[in-house]
Amino acid sequence: MATLSYSVRTKLVDILLENSDLITVLERMGISLGFGEATVGQICRQYGLDVEFFLMLCQIYHNPKFAPDSNRLTHAALPQILRYLKASHNYYIQTLFPQLEAMFSQTVMQLSTEHQQILKHFYQEYQEEAIRHFDYEESHVFPYVEHLIACGGRCSNSFHIQQFSENHTDIDSKLHDLKCIFIKYIPSAPSSWNLLHTIFHLEDDLLRHTVVEDSVLTPLVLRLESENKEEK
């Protein structure tokens, strides 16, 4: 397993200067700027965050190929993992999607009405699919994990985290295609650059989001489920 290059004693500002995408994560985790020379340890104490998970998050944003070792985390980190995942869903739905939609409309305005409609339909399809996927997690997966935390893993439930191997591939493909289509086939409009920049940012963030779901949340819950089974 890869080791973390950041530690409790690393200054948060140094991590941020290296990874601009983490800025939006701070916002999602409710961390205010203006923290001076505070270290990761100090920030986590101040905001009541799980240090191991926060460091893992920094590392995943630093390098999306980083394979997190969920054994470094205890069940106590679960509520914060959920908090990050939910806050990210909110960020996509409340902030990025409306921005994308507006820039998208501006960029396709130059095209014929027919082409505009087809592209808008494609984008809508993507957005609805993504929101459906987030909804499923919020209504099935997260409540299950919360339930599991509440009863300390000792509860009977027909749902298991393994069922949450829902793949993200189709949604990812559409976003990727959107990028290709705008780069290769649509002449640029003033809004094109921001549109592409936002699509890239969304894609990068979703990639990290998926790493947290698949390589942090899932193994941790699996562990909780199996500990429970052994006790029975």
């Binding site: 082409h115 087809i118 494609f122 399809e125 559409k174 295609d177 290709c180 289509i181």
Partner: peptide
């Protein structure tokens, strides 16, 4: 060749390039 994976993405390519009419 196209770097486009989804069926709806391929459909858009075909329309933008006048291979099919909407």
């Amino acid at each position: 060749k196209l770097g486009i994976r989804s069926i709806s993405g391929l459909t858009i390519y075909a329309i933008l390039n006048h291979l099919v009419e909407p």
